[in-house]
């Protein structure tokens, strides 16, 4: 049987190869090249010039970049553990053999199919100084909570965005954990029952070790999402108040798009990519190349 007909193979591969080259590989390579130039979206009279490491020098001294990066790490440190454990808790809850498990599962994942820009607007209203969240907090604290303007207070704006991001994203990780839970053979639990293990012991000695790969995957993918943080920031605070919610992606957007400085935006992009690359390689290392080609 002919498995090496060049025309046939060419027909199957060409469309995707051309598109990937033009819209992924080319821009990816260009990001590196452009980062050594003063390229602008609308070129000036002297055109684009090679300027060596100037953009990277600028980057090292750019306080807004470091502030953004610090916030991204801050987001990772707070959100990743909370979101991962909450997702696991939700998965365990909806995995119980109860009558309405599926009903609850549905409602827990609904936020994940919404567009971030849409729910970010709804939450801006909930976070209003006279909004529902403030009045609820006042109610449950018996009036101790005085009410704050969440999105306009340096102390509260970022935590408010974090809470909303967890609300929107946790259902997705819940479904990944749920798939992991359902892959654990029930015979493990039956054997533990015979040995007289209690629920906590079963969780600690069977569930958690069996979910090791799933947990690694969830932690890493949530970390990557944290570095891509953009939409909810732009919609809810635009990086403010006083830069307290500024992130790397917002900085790239402002430099490249608003200031049309493609060269500097590219240098920022390269650094951003190197961070993602390190995290992704860490994932491949921890998961032991599970996704290797068959």
């Amino acid at each position: 049987m002919n498995r090496s007909n060049k025309t046939v193979i060419g027909t199957f591969l060409t469309p995707a190869v051309v598109l990937l080259m033009a819209f992924m590989i080319l821009p990816f390579v260009m990001a590196f090249v452009l980062s050594f130039t003063n390229s602008r979206l609308i070129p000036g009279p002297r055109g684009t010039q090679y300027i060596g490491l100037t953009n990277y020098q600028k980057l090292v001294e750019d306080n807004m970049f470091w502030r953004g990066l610090k916030h991204n790490f801050y987001f990772v440190i707070i959100v990743v553990p909370i979101q991962t454990s909450l997702a696991l808790l939700l998965a365990i809850l909806v995995n119980q053999k109860l009558k309405f498990s599926k009903f609850f599962r549905t409602f827990y994942f609904i936020p994940t199919v919404t567009a971030m820009v849409a729910v970010a607007v709804v939450w801006s209203f909930l976070y209003h100084p006279n909004g529902l969240i403030n009045s609820f907090l006042t109610f449950i604290t018996g009036g101790v909570w005085g009410g704050v303007d969440f999105l306009n207070t340096t102390r509260w704006a970022f935590p408010a965005i974090m809470a909303m991001s967890i609300w929107q994203g946790v259902g997705f990780q819940m479904l990944i954990f749920l798939a992991g839970l359902q892959d654990i053979p029930s015979s493990y639990y039956e054997a533990a029952d015979i040995d007289g293990a209690n629920s906590w012991e079963k969780f600690k000695y069977i569930t958690l070790p069996q979910l090791k790969n799933t947990t690694t995957f969830v932690v890493i993918s949530t970390t990557i999402l944290a570095f891509r943080l953009f939409t909810q920031i732009l919609v809810m605070t635009n990086g403010g108040p006083q830069g307290s919610t500024y992130t790397v992606m917002l900085h790239i957007y402002k430099m490249a798009y608003q200031r049309l400085n493609i060269g500097y935006g590219s240098a920022l992009t390269v650094v951003f990519f190197i961070i993602i690359l390190i995290i992704s390689l860490l994932q491949r290392y921890l998961l032991g190349e599970q996704r290797e080609v068959a």
């Binding site: 033009a22 819209f23 992924m24 080319l26 821009p27 990816f28 260009m30 990001a31 452009l34 390229s39 979206l41 990557i224 891509r228 953009f230 992606m249 790239i252 490249a256 798009y257 493609i262 935006g265 590219s266 920022l268 992009t269 951003f272 990519f273 993602i276 690359l277 992704s280």
Partner: peptide, 14 residues
């Protein structure tokens, strides 16, 4: 591995 954000800027130029 490449997130869209890492190619958005040059893609805008292209």
């Amino acid at each position: 591995i490449i997130p869209f954000e890492a190619i958005a800027v040059p893609l805008l130029l292209i």
